[in-house]
Design a protein around this nucleic acid. Sequence first.
DNA 1: ACTAGCCAGATTGGATCCAATATGACAAGA
DNA 2: TCTTGTCATATTGGATCCAATCTGGCTAGT
Lengths: 218, 218
Amino acid sequence: MTEPTAGAASARIADALRVDILEGVLAPGERIRQEEVAERLGGSRLPVREALRVLAAEGLVELEPHKGARVPHLDRDEVEVLYRMRERLEPLALQLSRPNLSDLDLAEINRIQQRIEEGVSVPEFLHLDREFHMATYSGCRTDHLMSTIDRMWNATQHYRRAFMELAGAGRQWIVNAEHRLLLDAIQRADDDDAERYLSGHIRRTRKELITHPEIFGA
Amino acid sequence: MTEPTAGAASARIADALRVDILEGVLAPGERIRQEEVAERLGGSRLPVREALRVLAAEGLVELEPHKGARVPHLDRDEVEVLYRMRERLEPLALQLSRPNLSDLDLAEINRIQQRIEEGVSVPEFLHLDREFHMATYSGCRTDHLMSTIDRMWNATQHYRRAFMELAGAGRQWIVNAEHRLLLDAIQRADDDDAERYLSGHIRRTRKELITHPEIFGA
DNA sequence: ACTAGCCAGATTGGATCCAATATGACAAGA
DNA sequence: TCTTGTCATATTGGATCCAATCTGGCTAGT
């Protein structure tokens, strides 16, 4: 086969649109026309419609009847609450994951952090930072918890990028320090410390984010 | 018009299917055939397909390519983690909601609890208990948080009903006591106490649930 | 000149038809 | 009798066509 056609076409289109939104190709407020997507990604409008419904259920787009799909604008309060949700949920995922992490997993997490410290561009950092945290949760096999965490990261991705692009460079050393402390606690199998460092990491990020009102357009 | 056709047909069908699943008309493991749903609820298969995609994104059904939709079976661990998620997220919703609750809101919450104490059937209790908690969160206007809480309640609804039907009757007084303590803390505007009572309430429910392995089929 | 109403184009929502895949029964051989 | 391969049927996935609704520009009237 020339194409693996992994799964259904609607799933493939949903994935492609999700990537476009997360990478900022589609910015908040931007209109998404079904026909344009259909011809860009190949296929008819039908799987595009299904993909948009799925993305709407995930909170990545908002649908208004007969008016079409848009990437939603989040205000400062919404993003702040999403970070408060992360502060509470991700330590739970870490607690469930940590006992299942193998030495191989820990080496992989180390490797990711090393690449971050070697200096990377903003898009690369966003990708690797997510890889880092998700790797620490990889021992957690609970679907609902992991998909909820994915959703929270997805919903805030745009604002994380906006923040990094305008103020992130000078604060990189803090992220690295927090990641190292977190990783050390994980390797020491100290769940209490790990949870503390993790929630602190998210909490500090939240506080820095909301001090930049220019990130939140409308 | 005979029917207001509130919103789109696909949304209407998704709502109807959601109700069927939450009320136990469709049990875990049960197959959902598109054609049957289409003719039962009126309309063609197309909006049914879109509705199923939406429900799949919400975790209420699982779709396998070319094999159709089923109501998913949750195992004991998955339900336990969903309750642990509730223990962490719902106190946040309460904390954000409480300052916005009016005296009218509080009276409404009281009224709901009174109806619960007057003695109700299992389906009525499930409905009113949800009404009670959601009313305490009604001052929280954050979409992502509230939709996440909705999802957690939806995913666990079937197991809550199974538990109530086999062991719930004798424990009703505990629920009432916890609700009253929670409500009192809310009325005293004591957020710390309210969060403590709420997380304790959810935690106790979780512990009782997982001691009944017969609830979890597979 | 400005506003209100209307009409045409564009876009989404829904129905029907066709293709691809899974399911289950039945027959043939060991 | 049990297993295995094959084929008919049922069911889902995708494409195309038609209807309903929104958007923007234009005209007419004040």
